[in-house]
Computed example of a mutant assay.
Amino acid sequence: MASKELFTLDPGTRALLHDLGISAARVLRRAQLPAGLFAHGAVTMTPEEYYRFWEALDAEAADRDLAVRIGRALSAEAFNPPIFAALCSADLRTAAERIATFKPLIGPVNLDITSDRTGLTVTVHWPQGPPPPALLVTAELAFWVALARIGTRREVNPTRVAMRRAPKPSAETTSYFGTQIREGQADAVTFSAEDASLPFLTEDESMWDFFAPELRRRLSEVEAFTTTADRVRAALHERLPAGESSINTMAAQLMLSPRTLQRQLQAEGTSYQAVLSDTREKLARRYLADRSLPTPQVAYLLAYDDTNSFYRAFRRWTGLTPEAARNGTDLTTT
């Protein structure tokens, strides 16, 4: 799970690049990112890494109207869960409010939603530091147009589109938005009050009721994961059942070198081995509380090479064997 300072690169990005006729491998290579980046589902990135990806995408495509192509290529199937859930909303205004709430699941971007009789304005606030690539900003604004059109099945055009670093005018981009992108004090898109209230034909409140609890749970987790140690724990929860526990594997998952990962953990007063051991102990207690799981299976889920290694580790943590702990100890104690 990503922290508040991380972007999530959705695995659907790979399909989107394919639809755009752009080589994902070439983009990753140009961005100096791991070739197998899309192999393990969603990947978290620092803003610098995420921006580098978008800059590489822009350079690889060499198309000044790429953001428009991205907007036109978007579909309900390509959206990640928070966005798909927003399509269940009654209208664009409601969808914008929901997306603003759950935007941290996608990245450290804050959305200000202003809605009144004059219209609906979505303003995007990026993380502090280097400015985001122009392609990323334009694609973000194009996304809102795509969302409005997919939801209403109508050719909705915003009344105003502004960027702090507006690109040179393009007939294709102006045609897509229905208005020219202008210089502004913030990156924002405005829709008329009438268009913001158009009913979404994709509305499905029962589906929203299904999505919302899980989204809220994930949001609380995101807000809790603020340190490198927390990021490592989250990665271990995902990778240990696959038999992977090495620092090299976890560093690759977090888009860091093993040396950088260890240095960041040391700055937090811990080490990779300490986080690994603590995570395994907590998971061991949880697994052993489920008496349907035999001890060898617990050892497997914790990525131990053999059951004896797990026995030695558990005795080191608790002074007990797993069986003794199951028979006489509160395994929820940490």
Rank of each mutant, 00 (worst) to 15 (best):
S115Q: 09
P322E: 08
R182A: 14
G184V: 01
S245H: 12
R93Y: 03
E281D: 06
F84N: 09
T46L: 13
Y51S: 04
M45Y: 04
L105K: 04
F200T: 00
P82D: 04
R29N: 14
R165G: 06
A56S: 15
L66Y: 08
G21R: 14
R98D: 00
A171N: 08
L37A: 13
A86S: 15
V124T: 07
D209M: 08
V109L: 14
A142F: 03
L201W: 11
R218N: 10
L236M: 08
P108R: 09
F102Q: 03
P132K: 07
I181Q: 06
I181N: 04
V222M: 03
L28H: 11
V161G: 04
S277D: 14
G129Q: 03
A251C: 07
Y287V: 00
L147C: 12
Q253M: 10
H18N: 14
S271N: 09
T13D: 05
D112G: 06
T321R: 08
L87A: 03
T227H: 02
D306N: 15
E323G: 05
R316C: 01
V145I: 05
L74I: 03
E155M: 14
Y287N: 04
A252R: 13
A2M: 07
A100M: 06
A252P: 00
T226L: 10
K4H: 05
F84W: 07
G328F: 12
T159S: 15
I181S: 05
T179V: 15
V122I: 15
G184M: 07
D65C: 08
D305A: 13
E205W: 12
V145A: 08
F225A: 10
L37V: 09
A76S: 10
T329N: 02
L20K: 11
E5W: 10
R233N: 02
L219A: 05
L302N: 06
R72N: 12
R239L: 14
T118L: 13
Q128C: 07
G269L: 12
L276S: 10
